[in-house]
Design a protein around this nucleic acid. Sequence first.
DNA 1: GCGCTATATATTGTATACAATTTTTTGACC
DNA 2: GGTCAAAAAATTGTATACAATATATAGCGC
Lengths: 236, 236
Amino acid sequence: MPTRKSVAPRRQPASTETIVARITNALVEQRLPPGTKLGEVALGEVFGVSRTKIRQALIRLAQDKLITLLPARGAFVTKPEPRDARELFDARRVIERVLIERFTASATRAQIATLRDHIARERAAIAAGDAALRNRLLGEFHVLIAEMVGNSVLAELLRELMQRSTLVTLHYQNERAASCSSSEHTALLDAVRQRDAIGAVRLMEQHLTHVERDLALPGSNAAALDLRAALTLAKV
Amino acid sequence: MPTRKSVAPRRQPASTETIVARITNALVEQRLPPGTKLGEVALGEVFGVSRTKIRQALIRLAQDKLITLLPARGAFVTKPEPRDARELFDARRVIERVLIERFTASATRAQIATLRDHIARERAAIAAGDAALRNRLLGEFHVLIAEMVGNSVLAELLRELMQRSTLVTLHYQNERAASCSSSEHTALLDAVRQRDAIGAVRLMEQHLTHVERDLALPGSNAAALDLRAALTLAKV
DNA sequence: GCGCTATATATTGTATACAATTTTTTGACC
DNA sequence: GGTCAAAAAATTGTATACAATATATAGCGC
């Protein structure tokens, strides 16, 4: 077949920050399945920059464990082991239990309203069948809470854990499960509104257990795919 | 004055991994105080590599928040704000509370023996007045426990937090405080040995509170210093 | 001497060039 | 057709070159 020799795309060079964000989004929205090879020249062409910058972006993504760098072999989307999944969710439980407890005590009316709106957007994405957006929003709910608690170090840790979690959960692709997840978010927020710390902690633990239980780990349905298509769709 | 034009040091090129480890050690052992500028050419000469590799190492260090990259300005050893210190220790409390609780339940005889030996080395370093080694060992005690609990994700999170903590604590430079810290390690280990989970958790929280209380934050006694000297001393 | 501007120097940002390694292709041989 | 070996192509690893920016120095007016 003719190697799709597209013309060099005329776009102004992207910042390293942008490149990291675009690839991260593609990963979180699961447009780049685990195992996908991320070639440096291919990425360079997509973003209109040299390999130097791509490489810097890849180093950062590798440190977040979103991709795996094999020496002299290249960069691949991380394919998490079941063990990783368990440890990841365990770590999330440790941190999120504390976060939701504190949030229940400190949540302001405005913060609760923000979360309520967020859940509404989750439901809209689910209703619209937008799997990518749905995935992102369901994860961002947890990060939002973390950022509202007031410890940016913990919030940052959770953000990283959430991103890695997404690599592990094909589960959200199931529309029914997503809907269920969103319902649990609502219940969680109700407990917060009633200042029921014990209930909120319990709901959070159940929620994380449910998400973990629904994991579909070994399924690597990785078809060969088009890097450019996956990445250019990414809205930063 | 004559610009100390030392001959190009003949050493074989260091791997990026090594460069990161060497600089990290220098930071953890506080031979490179906060605010120190890490020039790319200077580092390149120290390690016998080009700026390309140095840059990659700096990106990784920056992601761990050990150094701060200012655009077009360069890399500087991170100077943590009091706010950062509080959040850092709060995060450590959240994680280490759980870790020590679990460790108390699962610790084997061999693991306890390893920690006992470690504490002995702490005391030796303190007695010998080796501030650099002392700093490292006091921090590694916590990381050792984390690694023994069996969740590598949590262990890795704690390792990062510990490194950043070290940037914040000039406190260990005080020999008396170091001795006190080591005593608390011993007490902690005793509680573990007696399977006293509640006591172990309490001791860990007190220990972290003590360390945090003794912080000497604003003191930036940063004298201009010799990058090469600080880095070549670093034993990986 | 102090402060400002202009020039010179040094440093960082990015692309390109080349070496080293891996992957793919080719072709001989059974 | 299948298997192995060698050559070719592609990809990664590193250094160097050059552009862009920031810092330091010099000169001038007051």
